[in-house]
């Protein structure tokens, strides 16, 4: 029994350091790609499109690695949860800046709320990770519009991402199925993003209340609408 435990420990340590290494390389890749894109700016549109597709994939892998790592840490109580009182605008700035260029290249208009006076208690890194992963998803499924909004409602901070695509498939809309989102290797939907969002929402607690996510269709643009609600 003891040997097996030891093995798992070593394997996860190894995984963690492998992920660390991959993230370093990916970081360089993403930065170099940015330089290259800047270099190509103004020239052939097709090239830029191809390059930004590359950049998107690299960021996607990076997001996934980050989520896996965070999940591992959250589930093993290894994550140092840092719930601080953050200006919501800072978070929106961060995710907006990180994604804007990419959305521009694909001709998607990315817009956001301005909520200068809104501050809330949350772990900035985790919530940033959630919004990034949802944006990553809408990048694929929206038609040409995405909107990030935030507001306070009934004692919760609600951060939402709206798109004008076809909306979420039915099985994802059924609340009870969120926990065990279907994993499909065909469509590439691993359910990781949603599972991660759920976990992040759940670790946000305020006295008796707990965070939650909601997925609906309709919303601002008649497409999909994802919200994370934090007490």
């Amino acid at each position: 029994m003891k040997d097996i435990d030891k093995q798992t420990l070593d394997f996860s340590t190894m995984l963690a350091s492998a992920v660390h290494d991959m993230k370093n390389s990916l970081g360089l890749l993403v930065n170099h790609l940015e330089d290259v894109i800047e270099h190509f700016d103004g020239s052939d549109k097709e090239d830029i499109k191809l390059l930004s597709q590359l950049q998107y994939e690299a960021k996607r892998v990076n997001n996934n690695l980050l989520q896996i790592l965070s999940l591992y840490r959250l589930e093993n109580s290894l994550y140092a949860l840092n719930i601080a009182y953050n200006p919501v605008n800072d978070l929106l700035d961060d995710v907006y800046i990180q994604n804007k260029t990419l959305f521009d290249y694909k001709g998607i208009s990315l817009e956001r709320d301005d909520c200068s006076d809104l501050c809330w208690f949350f772990d900035n890194d985790l919530v940033c990770g959630v919004v990034n992963s949802i944006l990553n998803n809408t990048f694929r499924y929206t038609l040409d519009k995405v909107f990030i909004s935030a507001c306070e409602k009934d004692g919760y901070l609600s951060i939402c991402v709206d798109d004008n695509g076809e909306g979420y498939p039915d099985y994802m809309l059924e609340e009870s199925s969120i926990d065990k989102t279907e994993i499909s290797f065909k469509t590439g939907s691993t359910g990781l993003g949603i599972y991660f969002s759920e976990m992040v929402a759940k670790v946000h607690k305020n006295k008796a209340r707990q965070g939650f996510i909601s997925i609906t269709n309709g919303g601002r643009y008649g497409g999909g609408r994802f919200c994370i609600n934090l007490p």
Partner: peptide
Amino acid sequence: ENTMTMVMGAIEYKPDDYLTKPFT
């Protein structure tokens, strides 16, 4: 990434901010 061993140094010496790799 958010590493525990890091966050657990002496608390009175906190950096002004953390930046996660990779960044643009």
